[in-house]
Amino acid sequence: MNIVVCVKQVPDTTEVKVDPQNHTLVRQGIPAIVSPFDKNALEEALKLREKHGGKVTVISMGPNQADAALKECLSIGADDAVLISDAAFSGADTLATARTLAAAIRKLGKVDMILCGKQAIDGDTAQVGPELAEQLGIAVVTYVAKIEVDGNVVTIQREHEEGYMVLETKLPVLATVVKSINVPRLATIKGRMKANKTQIAVWTANDIDIDSSLIGLNGSPTRVHRVFAPPQRSQGEMIEGTTTRDTVNKLLGKLTDAKLI
């Protein structure tokens, strides 16, 4: 099986800051990690490769420093990695991102399965996976908790709020996975050493067959109007009285004044 895993390098969620001028995430100087659900997708790809043979390729769209995320995936066990990086991709919304990833995946050749995390933890849109499947014209199943492959038939257990659905489809297919599907393995020292020596392939807009009007900011039908943190809530007031009845009467008085009762 030829499996592609789409990964995204994201800011560590405990360190997220927003630029007040252009309303974008500040990434410079902020610790970056592989989006956690993408690690579940990689783990599932490795398990499928171990069972059925084949190759696992990780692919990411992002700035040059995103090669660190791809090297981490290589150290965990991926066979190959491609970084799609070009200033022309800047400002892409989920649709423009899906178009770009689709063009790159077509260049890879025949692909049996594409795995993505259910969503990236910075945007939380959960849109790129399904949009990518639409661009490639293949089946898609979201919130996947289990995958079994028998020849060309794929049986998938899909998680939802009331339990699980069991679906059957055929290859090629794109699946977005949830955390419960597996426990991601850790990189080995040997894997890290090998990954650090690997030169990650970088593809620019000129390397993939795509209309320049469909990528980046120009190819994005949506725009971020404003990004902001909600105002900090004021602390509550401590009400004290000489007795319990006195305290309750003071509380009732304040609720009455505020027209809450």
Rank of each mutant, 00 (worst) to 15 (best):
S90K: 12
V149C: 08
I121P: 00
G163F: 14
L115T: 02
S180G: 10
L217Y: 09
L174R: 05
L186Q: 15
T94A: 11
T204G: 04
E134P: 06
A205M: 11
E162F: 15
C73V: 04
V144G: 01
V141G: 07
Q199V: 07
T188W: 09
E162N: 12
T142L: 04
Q135V: 08
R106V: 01
L136I: 06
G137P: 03
M165N: 09
V178K: 09
G163P: 05
G216Y: 08
V144C: 04
I114H: 09
L174G: 01
V153C: 12
N206F: 09
V153E: 13
T204S: 03
D79V: 02
K197S: 00
T155G: 08
E134Q: 14
E168R: 08
W203S: 00
I138E: 08
I181N: 08
L70M: 10
I208V: 12
R185I: 11
V82M: 06
C73M: 05
D86L: 10
L74E: 01
L136C: 02
R185D: 06
I121Q: 04
I215M: 14
T176Y: 05
T94F: 14
K190V: 11
D86A: 11
D209R: 00
P172M: 15
I147A: 10
N196E: 06
V183H: 14
N182Y: 13
F89W: 01
Q199G: 10
T100A: 15
L214E: 05
L70E: 14
P184R: 15
R158I: 09
R106H: 00
S212V: 07
E159M: 15
N196I: 08
P130F: 03
L70N: 10
A98V: 04
L74F: 08
M113P: 07
E72N: 07
V178I: 13
S75W: 10
G91M: 02
I156R: 03
L214T: 01
L136F: 06
A139F: 10
K194S: 12
I147P: 02
G77L: 13
V82D: 03
G137N: 10
M193A: 10
E134K: 13
D112N: 03
S213A: 14
R185F: 12
D93A: 08
A205N: 14
P130G: 06
N152T: 12
K118E: 02
V82N: 05
A145E: 11
K71D: 04
L83R: 08
A133I: 01
L83A: 10
I210V: 15
V141P: 04
T198G: 05
I208F: 07
T188V: 08
I76L: 15
M193L: 10
A187M: 01
A102P: 03
R192C: 10
V141I: 15
E159N: 14
I121W: 02
T155K: 15
T100Q: 14
L186C: 15
V177N: 09
S90G: 09
R99C: 15
I156Q: 01
A175E: 11
S213V: 15
I181D: 05
I105T: 10
